[in-house]
Design a protein around this nucleic acid. Structure first.
Length: 472
DNA sequence: TCATGTTTACAAGCAC
DNA sequence: GTGCTTGTAAACATGA
């Protein structure tokens, strides 16, 4: 036994945690008391104290470092960013109650913050549901289908907890794959050697991943068979050209046990009465989990109850916008671009928007700028052309070129793909080569604040959420 | 034999 | 209270 342990530690030296051999696992993550000590601003690397504006590469570096992303050059799938508030719903820095051990569940004022890295911390159970873990593994594999063992391996490689845990979690994984209709088994071909079949996410359930959250909605049994509901209508748009969710599966959210939430009634009240984007203490939990409706986001922005993005959970808001818009704009495209909020594998999609990604292989590279860009493009897209010409006689930024968008030159889509949106648009539109746009974009150091200003302009130009919704 | 996959059962937490 | 979601455990079948 000792020998096996020694061998294990030789493979995973980070598993050597002094004094934790027999310690019970800390489940204090179920508490949201850290919220009392957690400040969104303090976790925002773009804020003063970070690398500072005008230094995007260092900003990104710091960002990824703090989020726990693997550095450039590694091919291994990244552990979900433990500190990515938008992605995981967990704080970047947890207060001492969360990580101070199993003896005390009473929240204490945060002492020096401790970064939780699920990849190396065997004591903290990742706050992800098994379904989310499966999706993460599928996404990280970059393959259209994965085997069960691939899922196992990815989870154990990226979550130290499961390396130590009893193997019963694997049973749960299998159970989840079998029971969860979102997962579809792909039988192995006869000429394919190996054991077991492959698994993929059923595209029919793509909208389970709204805002990157694996959401199970309370739906009627015929939700997915009915063709009359608006949900299905919207879903069909989301799924169209979205053959495999692994191309767009996002992992911002946490679908873990709900006991992680704070006061039930408090959250309810916050949801009902407050903007999902206004990071009040009451609704931070939802925001941090990415658990809010996009419609509400637009309602707030468009309705004027949210005058600026500066007070918002930037990452969540933008990644949500980017993700949602990205999916909704897929049309019939085969190369479904992954959502902007994806925390890993920047190769495919972010590779198409490298002007903002700085070629980071993993992480939220270019997230803010790209998300803003996508959201703004969406806003433009949904404005009648005449109205746009009226409101924007001159494009404020080359990236916001409406004609390019109409021609399928959306930066997050393939450059050469034919336009599928508004095909009735005249062909004589003067186009600016995308490469040229890209160069211009690179030359312009668009800061977040500037980006938000642009966003605000477009959003405030839009009239109502209904207008957007009608197009969606 | 073991990994894989299916199914059943139960409990906890939560939304309605 | 009811139903849904999630997690856990277990039994069983199948195939490499």
């Amino acid at each position: 036994e000792r020998e096996r342990e020694r061998q294990w530690l030789s493979i995973y030296p980070e598993d050597q945690v002094p004094g934790c051999d027999s310690a019970p696992l800390d489940d204090s993550l179920t508490s949201l008391h850290w919220l009392q000590n957690f400040s969104i601003l303090s976790a925002d690397p773009e804020r003063p104290g970070g690398a500072g504006p005008g230094c995007p590469s260092s900003q990104h570096h710091l960002y990824f470092k703090r989020l726990g992303f693997p550095r450039a050059g590694t091919d291994s799938p990244s552990s979900p960013p433990a500190g990515d508030t938008a992605a995981t719903g967990m704080p970047l820095y947890l207060g001492s109650p969360v990580t101070s051990g199993s003896e005390s569940t009473v929240p204490i004022q945060a002492s020096p913050p401790v970064e939780v890295d699920y990849k190396t911390n065997p004591k903290v159970k990742p706050p992800y549901s098994y379904a989310s873990l499966i999706c993460m593994a599928m996404e990280a594999s970059k393959q259209p289908k994965v085997t069960l063992s691939t899922i196992y391996n990815w989870i154990t490689e990226n979550f130290c907890y499961y390396r130590h845990a009893e193997p019963s979690w694997q049973n749960s994984i299998r159970h989840n794959l079998s029971l969860n209709k979102c997962f579809k088994k792909v039988p192995r071909q006869k000429d394919e050697p190996g054991k077991g079949g492959f698994w993929q996410i059923d595209p029919q359930y793509a909208d389970m991943f709204v805002n990157g959250i694996f959401k199970r909605k309370r739906l009627s049994a015929n939700h997915y068979s009915s063709s009359s509901s608006s949900n299905v209508h919207r879903q069909s748009k989301l799924v169209q050209g979205y053959p495999a969710i692994q191309n767009g599966c996002l992992y911002q959210g946490v679908s873990g046990k709900r006991k992680q939430l704070a006061s039930k009634s408090g959250n309810k009240a916050a949801r009902a009465t407050e903007s999902p984007l206004l990071a009040t203490e009451a609704n931070k939990a939802d925001i941090l989990r990415g658990d809010f409706d996009l419609a509400s986001v637009f309602d707030d922005v468009l309705g004027g109850s949210c005058s600026t993005f500066e007070d918002l959970d930037i990452n969540t808001a933008l990644s949500s916008l980017g993700c949602e818009m990205e999916v909704s704009l897929q049309g019939g495209r085969q190369h479904a671009a992954a959502g902007l909020g994806r925390w890993c594998d920047g190769g495919d999609v972010l590779g198409q928007s490298q002007h903002v990604s700085h070629h980071q292989p993993y992480g939220y590279a270019g997230l803010s700028a790209a998300s803003m860009e996508c959201a703004v493009n969406m806003a433009e897209l949904h404005l009648p052309q005449q109205q746009q010409q009226q409101q924007h006689p001159q494009h404020q930024h080359p990236q916001l070129d409406h004609d390019h968008l109409l021609q399928g030159h959306h930066p997050l889509h393939g450059f050469d793909e034919p336009a599928t949106l508004f095909p009735e648009q005249p062909e004589e539109a003067v186009l600016q080569p995308w490469e040229e746009i890209k160069e211009e974009a690179q030359a312009i150091p668009l800061t977040l604040d500037q980006g938000f200003g642009l966003c605000e302009g477009f959003f405030t130009d839009m009239q109502t959420w209904e207008r957007v919704d009608s197009y969606l």
